[in-house]
């Protein structure tokens, strides 16, 4: 059991990385990977929200929707849960970490539409995970996404010092190129762990 959990975690971080394998959560990825500080802040917020929503969504799906035969509406239910928990995170941040909240600006509410939050809940349904696996998978996916955004943010900070990027490639363009090359190198781990 512990081994399966470890495998799921490693797979979610390395071989099935949300940002590098599925290319999910790109909007916040591109806008917030300019500096290490905001990137790691966003990463922590995503880890928190993703794990929290998975913890709430699993019982709702398996204990309420499945027994009552209303799996049809799981998209709507998941989205509502996600929106509510993002609201919660925002209120906590506003109260305790105002500078961080100011740095996020519009992007914190945008976690609602960060694809990986919904993707984790949907993967948990498709792959028929049990409760513990779901939590570990959600945590691992969010950690993998955070690692990716922090790596790219550090590269971006270095690029600002040394690079001389052609006009058309600045901003999102160069980030997509960097992401692509990192994704190529992550392919090397294919087969190390499987879901």
């Amino acid at each position: 059991m512990a081994l399966t959990l470890l495998t799921v975690f490693a797979a979610a971080v390395l071989t099935h990385n949300m940002a590098l394998t599925y290319l999910l959560g790109m909007c916040p990825f591109i806008s917030l990977s300019r500096s290490l500080r905001t990137a790691s802040g966003m990463g922590i917020a995503v880890v928190f929200v993703v794990t929290l929503t998975a913890i709430i969504n699993w019982p709702i799906y398996n204990l309420i929707l499945v027994p009552t035969g209303t799996e049809l509406i799981y998209y709507i239910v998941f989205i509502i849960v996600i929106a509510a928990s993002v609201q919660l995170v925002e209120m906590i941040m506003e109260r305790f970490f105002p500078p961080l909240q100011a740095a996020f600006g519009i992007f914190l509410p945008l976690i609602t539409v960060n694809c990986i939050v919904l993707a984790v809940s949907l993967f948990m349904v498709i792959r028929e995970y049990n409760y513990l696996t779901t939590v570990v998978f959600a945590f691992g996916s969010a950690v993998g996404w955070t690692i990716a955004i922090v790596i790219v943010a550090a590269i971006n900070e270095k690029l600002r010092l040394i690079a001389d990027i052609p006009k058309g490639m600045t901003g999102p363009g160069i980030i997509m190129v960097i992401l692509g090359i990192i994704a190529l190198s992550f392919l090397g781990f294919a087969g190390v762990v499987n879901l």
Binding site: V150, I151, A154, I155, E157, K158, I178, I181, I182, L184, S185, F186, L187, G188, F189, A190, G191, V192
Partner: peptide, 25 residues
Amino acid sequence: VIRSFSGYTEGVMFSIIFMNALTPL
């Protein structure tokens, strides 16, 4: 790790590109 456990037989190029990405960090 790549040489021993992954589907690829050689891991040198993956490892160097991977670590190039981590260098600024």
